[in-house]
Design a protein around this nucleic acid. Sequence first.
DNA 1: GTAGCTTAGGAAAGCGGATTCCTGGGCTAC
DNA 2: GTAGCCCAGGAATCCGCTTTCCTAAGCTAC
Lengths: 350, 350
Amino acid sequence: MADEPFGVVRLADVARRARVSPSTASRVINGNAKHVTEALRTRVMKAVEELRYVPNAHAQLLARPQRTAVGVIVHDVSDPYFAELTRGLQRVAADHGRLLVICNSYRDPVRELEYVELLRAQQVAAIVPAGSGYHDSKFTREFNAELRAYQQAGGRVAVIGRHDIVGDAVVPGNEHGAYLLGTELFGLGHERVAVIAGPRVLTTTTDRLAGVKRAAHEFGRQLPPKRIRYDDFSRDGGASAAIDLLDREPGLTAIIALNDTMAVGALAALRERGVAVPEQVSVVGFDDVPIARDVTPALTTIRLPLVEMGVRAMSLALDAPDPARKPRAPRVQHVAAEIVRRASAGPPPR
Amino acid sequence: MADEPFGVVRLADVARRARVSPSTASRVINGNAKHVTEALRTRVMKAVEELRYVPNAHAQLLARPQRTAVGVIVHDVSDPYFAELTRGLQRVAADHGRLLVICNSYRDPVRELEYVELLRAQQVAAIVPAGSGYHDSKFTREFNAELRAYQQAGGRVAVIGRHDIVGDAVVPGNEHGAYLLGTELFGLGHERVAVIAGPRVLTTTTDRLAGVKRAAHEFGRQLPPKRIRYDDFSRDGGASAAIDLLDREPGLTAIIALNDTMAVGALAALRERGVAVPEQVSVVGFDDVPIARDVTPALTTIRLPLVEMGVRAMSLALDAPDPARKPRAPRVQHVAAEIVRRASAGPPPR
DNA sequence: GTAGCTTAGGAAAGCGGATTCCTGGGCTAC
DNA sequence: GTAGCCCAGGAATCCGCTTTCCTAAGCTAC
């Protein structure tokens, strides 16, 4: 601790202080100390200690191309859906001794593209694009081209929740989950059921909507456009959509929110209006985010094993694929959606 | 698009394809194209396009030491407290064109130390340790030494919510906020007030506890150890602490949870037990996390402007300090805590 | 026509480390 | 006593890119 170092400490500084060559210092630091005497060894370690030397990761990566980080591109980590997903991703990454770089695209396709480039530039070992795809074929093509170039160079790709993108994939049962929601509500006898949907451009919206429509169809019911409201996948989006829907058609008896965050917003809006849930209007969500059970009434929703999905995706990304497989054949894992019945849905008022 | 490239594409490949020297290619790509003819320029751009070339960031950083990323070390991004903080950090980082690397320490001091080393190795421009400090002087010393070495090398450090660490700081009014909580409850006439606290080793716990004690003292009340329960800063921690407290002393009339997540857990536990909030027992939280207003009853809590705190910290980290200042004098910004009265606290039952 | 500039663009020198290739000293073995 | 080995540890090369340095071609001006 004697003399405080100034400026960046480099390997050469350590070597000089230990009075050895950089080669020797490097060997000691990297554990390839087979050919180094104990005396030199300790001298080097002491120097490292005193100078608080940390090797320059960039130089290391250049010299020995060994990719250490992995990247995930999510819409927004502070959204509980992605927070849970990330937790699973992180766990596996950590188990593999990998650093997880988290990128928030805020649902901006351009930013998503930029992040792929950035992660590519960082030489990450794997990229995990998580979250909905976009109905935008130009973008999708671009995105795929970028990803393919990355794979070409040895990068691994595992996608969560998209089906339009190259690479291994973990695909949640969006359509099926929404179908379950529909059958639940129609089964309870609801006739005027409205849907609070996320942005139109997102494939998640489309997929889930399709599930609801299938259920409606099966029950011989309609889901006219006026009963569908598109808004942000956010609490406030859910709230304003609910208000809007109710203003247009006060006779509604059930609302299907296409994610929990929106459902929470809807709940808040209804409470403010003095509409009793589920006595007057039933509300259901999707995702089974942690807070779903803590709002009042507790949310009937579709459980997606979010952490598990993250775990699986990162495993796909990091476990080398079976070399016997056709390299171009991506592995796809479907995860089942199941309904969680809580207090927010009941029979329609009569 | 003609021939698919194979393997990693390097600058040399681009240069070869464009039939120019690597120097020229580099100049074009970096915009230093002053000395390059339009003809060559377009040829290079075309090659970049076709090959989907992305420069190796590590090589770039080595050649032109220009730090581009910033790192934040949080306990857990999926905790809403840190999610909000991160959102603020991210916003400013993005405005500065910086990539934000998020590291989850899961409240493990050792991991925190490792992450500092890792971020140092990555040559990040700034490190933002966010979240509580630890009562562990050996660790604190180590952590500081590591951080100081980083600063020595030109790195910037901005801390959120710790006071025992070098660098600029954003310090929330933990003690004051808790004091407000105390005065609120004692002011309402509660006498048997219990506290659900986070882990003992965290300075945040100590600070907030101190605030409650000050309020108690001011009101001539006691806060005996049996009314303090230490547990994880998590929903389940809050739930089990609440149960425990109530089992020991059924006559409690108010519970102060030292963060919202624990408060939500407490609320759930009480609901399960059939204890009415706030009629029988008042519950208050701390942080004003987004869900605080969506649980029932809506949580009376202490607002910390979390996003704002993130913004400020990252600004401190990225805006060069006034060169006139003494370099060793850290800038400290205090952020005020204010009480948000909602439905979960009321007068004690009589 | 030649001296003196300017400028496009190629060659080469690092950036910080890992690693391969050597060198020379200490052995063993005949 | 010397040839042949082994091994510790130093010298040199390379990773991919940026940038400085330099060369030579194209100008202007006298």
